[in-house]
Write a protein that binds this DNA or RNA. Sequence first.
RNA 1: GCGAAUGUGGCGGAAUUGGUAGACGCGCUGGUUUCAGGUACCAGUGAGUAACAUCGUGGGGGUUCGAGUCCCCCCAUUCGCACCA
Length: 935
Amino acid sequence: MRSPHRSRDRHDLPPQVQPAAGRGGVAARAPQGRHRRGGDHARAEVPLGDRADRAVLRGARDPQARRRRRRSGRDHAADHQGPGRLMAGFDHRTVDARWQAFWTRENTFATPTDRTRPKYYVLDMFPYPSGDGLHVGHPKGYTATDVVARAKRMMGFNVLRVMGWDSFGLPAERRAEQTGEHPSVITKRNIATFKAQLQKLGLSYDWSRELATSDPTYYKWTQWIFSVLFERGLAYRKEVAVNFCPALGTVLANEEVHDGKYIETGDPVEQRNMTQWMLKITAYADPLVEDLALVDWPAGTLKKQQDWIGKSIGADVVFKVADSDRSITVFTTRPDTLFGGTWVVLAPEHPLVDAITTPAQQAAVAAYREEVSKRSIRDRTMEAADAPKTGVATGAFATNPVNGARIPIWIADYVLASYGTGAVFACPAGDERDHAFATKFGLPIVEVVQGPAGHDVQAAAFTGDGPHVNSGFLDGLGNDAAKTAVIAWLAERELGKQVVRYKMRDWLFSRQRYWGEPFPTIEKQDGTVELVPFAQLPVTLPAIDEYKPTRDGQPPLARAVEWRQTTDHDGQPALRETNTMPQWAGSCWYYLRFISPTNDQVAWDADEEKYWMPVDLYVGGNEHATLHLLYARFWHKVLFDAGLVSTKEPFQRLFHQGMIHKTSFQDPTTGKYFYPEEVEPRGDDDKSWFVKGTDTAVVTKFDKMSKSKKNVVNPDDMCNEYGADAMRMYELFMGPLEDGVEWATDGVRGTRGFLDRSWRLLVDPETDTLTAKVSEDAPTDNKDLERALHATIKRVTESVTDLRFNTAVAQLMTFVNEATKAKQIPRAWFEAFVKIMSPFAPHLAEEIWQRLGHTTTIAYAPWPAFDEAKLAKDTITIAIQVTGKMRGTVDVAADASEATILAAAKAEPKVAELIAGKAIKREIYVKGKLVNLVV
RNA sequence: GCGAAUGUGGCGGAAUUGGUAGACGCGCUGGUUUCAGGUACCAGUGAGUAACAUCGUGGGGGUUCGAGUCCCCCCAUUCGCACCA
């Protein structure tokens, strides 16, 4: 991707911003006390529009066109003629450009190197740099983390705030197949686009730590971690049935396949046997479940991880096959119900089926197995849990170990060969599937756990807890006690034992693709595998002339014939691996590389790792709830066991931002999508949409933004028209961070209006000079304004922790409304406001800060404290209810006694009328809030 | 089918966790400024009424002096999971 950046860590804090001498630097001015003439403010590279500029801009404006755009609500095809709306506000183009240039020039956001302060590591899930560029959905999480990062800096934390690129992956490779361009070139271009878009938003990343997973200086270390896994016996090659996607020419992990299709593209997936690299994630199943207790994650995500791992504790139980010396081991989580076991079911693929099937049943069994095998895995997994049961008897019988009962052995496809032992015993009274099977095939149902009164096990299974019946030595015991008792009984007789099983399988870790990390392994002549020595890492991707798999189905790297030829540690000929790692590999550890991104001796510095880890706040979409987050935790735990990292878990706190949607318009018959400006609403309620000028009806749907659905809103357009700060603020104001919302450009206008009002508190836009409103000697007896200020500091401060930015922005607005009403604003109050709004609207805040006479960046100005005492009111409004109904209010002194308040309440005219002549049965007083007079 | 979440004005959403429902913003209505229907400012904006009364947080019950908030039963939407014994 790029050559490594030289580390430019800052060595002193707080950073003093140096005026850029000789360049008319923005800060090249002595601090001043009060109002200065606006005309003398220093110019940055991009001059602030002067009167003449504005006159031109205003003259160039076409009010009609503007109105049409506004009313249409789809003006994101932004007007590139000029700002166009700045008469009463600030010039965001100039301000944004000036401060972005300033931050870059001054290295404002370089990561501090002092290690005595507390640290805060806030991380975004890094994006795959697609060719489409960013849409307004991407920055929602980035803006939230930016507010946290900026506020934490001001609160005295050393903040690690970084961005990188998950840049290996399929789309670039597919594009390369089409164009012949090297994926690295495509990727580099896409990264440049993404980066430019992010920089327009003023996100406070330390860009000197930027990384890309496809960069050899990065994947060298991905290969090294693979070596660690290999050396610890956690990476192995195996011939396995894999999910092969013919359209992509590669295998996929189980996690990437859903309903028999590749999740990303929807291409069908089929089963094939191939030799593949596997990672033994199952060896970490237990810690992966247990350590979820250590992290502060959304409950839903914790549950998804648990479900994915699918730990279940049960027993393996041996059933002897009658009239035979064979036996069947079944897995069950309900050994307590063994007395109700009235038949045994094998998966159709179970190896014992052939051996035990009686001659009379052979034809039926063969036919059933044939039928099942014809149905693909896809069909089988698509079936619902309540799908009709099918199956066929083998004719053989088994002996129930607990009661010696002779019970039939069936095969049925609801038993999966790949889980447990591929065999189960059926207890129809205690399992819904078994019950359905019993009902269909007329098999006996024996009650073993007593359900609630009136429950008929012949009609429905009872899966709950209760006293056991018909169960010999288990009678009367509850489920747990019965389980313990029966397992002990079985173990004594060597007929069973307690076991733990997981749904999770080992991780299929190789792909037949070009654009991924090569494995640091070679295959020797005897077929064994050895690691490429560390000194020879990275194993870089060779240039090849075509990125498709070979005609005989080998991965693209098989084309690099010379590159493949190498030697082992004895100098004997050996071949390089032609598979590459899946895209997850790079994202499994990038949070560690950010700690020492340019170190070419180690993947990360141990002391630095101890300082920065764990990630304090990790923000990204919940689509990664199982895959990325599970894989990364797995690698981290291996690294922990290897003594390479200091924490058991990588991500202390996790937060999922909601997705931003936008209505899409699709012709249901052709599937074609239309841009918003191509369609129009018709009908009385404007609810039917048609393609303009035609009778083609289109259906509307809230959709993820995507180019193909023609519903993308581009953040660049928003920045151009409304400014980065208005855009940032709207992203946070639109609703709770975790919620999905529909994008509404009108809302950006709203936050822009707020920024303009904030600006005008200090600057007269007509003259571009400071107003007299904010002043050193303004009276400080404006209690309403003071209270609003402290309430705002409080709410914004809390929002940094609870991530409820929508209400924080609302509170900032409330303060500005209050301040607009005020005749004068004490300078100290206004400065406190500017500080707390600066994480949200950093460009404008810097500009105001400078106009206030400051010569250093606001990014490290100390965060203001709020005073609870200042939040209290002198007089409070007490609500008065009569028998629970609101009847009025009364204003009383904040320290008024209960008796005084009750008296005042009763004296309120309307209340007095209602209680006149009635006996008050009860008087309820809620301190400082209300009284309720019950009559 | 199972699980989780959500349901509040025309719209996005607030509500200190049982105590004045609708903060803040959008939109809308009226006014002032203005060459301008743009910007800014002022006023209003849950429904209903001439004004009251009254009715209002998906629906229905319940607990309570008091319920958007707690309990029970429905309905709807969204997102997961999909025969894992």
